[in-house]
Structure formats: C-alpha cells, structure tokens
C-alpha cells in the first residue's frame, strides 16, 4: 500500500476519485492499528466483547469510526494533527463500550454497604487528628445525605465510592455523560459552599486529611 501523508488526508477525503480511495484506504489502516494498539494497552479480554477474535473487534470499531469521521469531516478545524483528531474518535468509541461491558462483568462485592469501611490506616496514637477527621467526615456525610438532591447524591456516591464509570451512571440515571458530570459538578459546588458556610475551606479539609495520611 502506498502511504499517504497524514496532513493530506482531509483534503483527499473531501475530493473524489482515486485520491479519495487512497485516503480512505490509508485512514482505515490507521484506525485499525489504533484500535489494536488501544486493545493492547487496555488488556481487555477478547471474551469481554462477545467476539471470537481481536481482528473482528478492531475491524468493527475501525469501520464505525471511519463512518463517523467522514460524517464529521467538516468539523475538523485543522488546529491539531488529523490523525490525533481521528484517533480520539476511535478511542472514545471503544472506551465507553468497554466500560459498560467490564462493569457488567466485574466481581460482585462481598457486602452492599454504600460507604466502604475505613481501614486502620491512621496511627492509633494520633487521636486528635483522627477525631478531627471523623468530625469532618460526619459533617460531609450529613451534607451529602441531607442537602444534595437524590440525583446529585446518586452520581456522587456512584462515582466516588462505588467507582462507577460515567457511562454506567448515565445509563442508570437515564441521561448522558455530560449531565452526570453536571450533577457531580453541582454536588461538589454545593459541598464547597456548605463547608465554607460553616467556616471550613476545602484546603483546611485537605489539611485534616493530610494529618491523618
């Protein structure tokens, strides 16, 4: 295959005839390699995709990304390499699908507590620091329970305590990732202001945390 310089790809894809064909062939090859390189990096087992081989997985994602890229070609502004722009699209396609699938395949926890138990990582003789931290934690917990909306609370607890991917939370809350991020942002803003209203800055809270680390 005759290689096409990456910076020529957008113009060639917009043209017709043999130039467009050559550019399409080059882009498909780049996307296929990008998909495979991402799979190598992430170490997703082939079974997680419900597929027989990595080849078929990579080819499917490369084709899907190729269609999206052609559809969105006019939004490429030329402020980055064309290949960087294209690779972002295929990585995002695979990443969100894998987060969904891997979350479904995860081992179930042994208990179902909302907040996991604290381990004994604080020196037992550091009683004052421990008490200060416990008081702060109780305050934050009360704000989360009493002042956040149910959806803000679900997003915050799901993300920070249960480590759910945004796409999984979006599915559960019947919305999209941007709206989940907005819920998290609003929850953080509320916590920041609520702490400030009680005379505690986040920096001071971090100081308490550091004394207990």
């Amino acid at each position: 295959m005759v290689r096409v310089a990456a910076e020529r790809l957008p113009a060639m894809l917009r043209s017709g005839g043999p130039e467009r064909e050559a550019a399409s062939e080059e882009l498909r090859d780049l996307l296929l390699r990008a998909a495979l390189a991402y799979l190598v990096r992430q170490q997703y087992p082939v079974e997680a995709f419900g597929a027989d081989s990595y080849t078929s997985i990579a080819e499917d994602y490369a084709q899907e990304a190729f269609v999206i890229i052609l559809r969105q070609l006019d939004t490429y502004r030329g402020d980055c390499r064309f290949t960087t722009w294209a690779y972002r699209i295929i990585i995002n396609l695979i990443a969100d699908e894998m987060r969904r699938r891997c979350w479904r395949r995860r081992p179930l926890p042994e208990d179902t507590e909302v907040y996991p138990r604290r381990r004994a990582s604080v020196a037992e003789n550091d009683v004052a620091a421990l008490a200060e931290r416990r008081a702060l934690w109780q305050l934050i917990d009360a704000i989360i329970q009493q002042e956040l909306t149910p959806r803000q609370r679900a997003a915050l607890v799901g993300r920070l305590f249960e480590e759910k991917p945004l796409i999984v939370l979006a599915d559960e809350l019947g919305t999209n990732k941007d709206n989940v991020y907005k819920l998290l942002h609003d929850a953080r803003k509320h916590l920041k202001r609520a702490l400030q209203a009680r005379g505690i800055s986040a920096a001071e809270a971090l100081g308490v945390e550091r004394r207990c680390s």
Partner: peptide
Amino acid sequence: MDEDRAFRRLVRSVDLTQDEEIDC
C-alpha cells in the same frame, strides 16, 4: 476502595471545584 481513599478523593475534588467547568 475504602473510606480513606474515597474521603481523600472527595475533599480534593471539592478543593479543585470551580464555578464554571467544561463538560466531557
């Protein structure tokens, strides 16, 4: 995952929070 780490994450994320943030 435990409370220590969750607590640290939460406090650090609150500390970084700005009034305006871009979405994903």
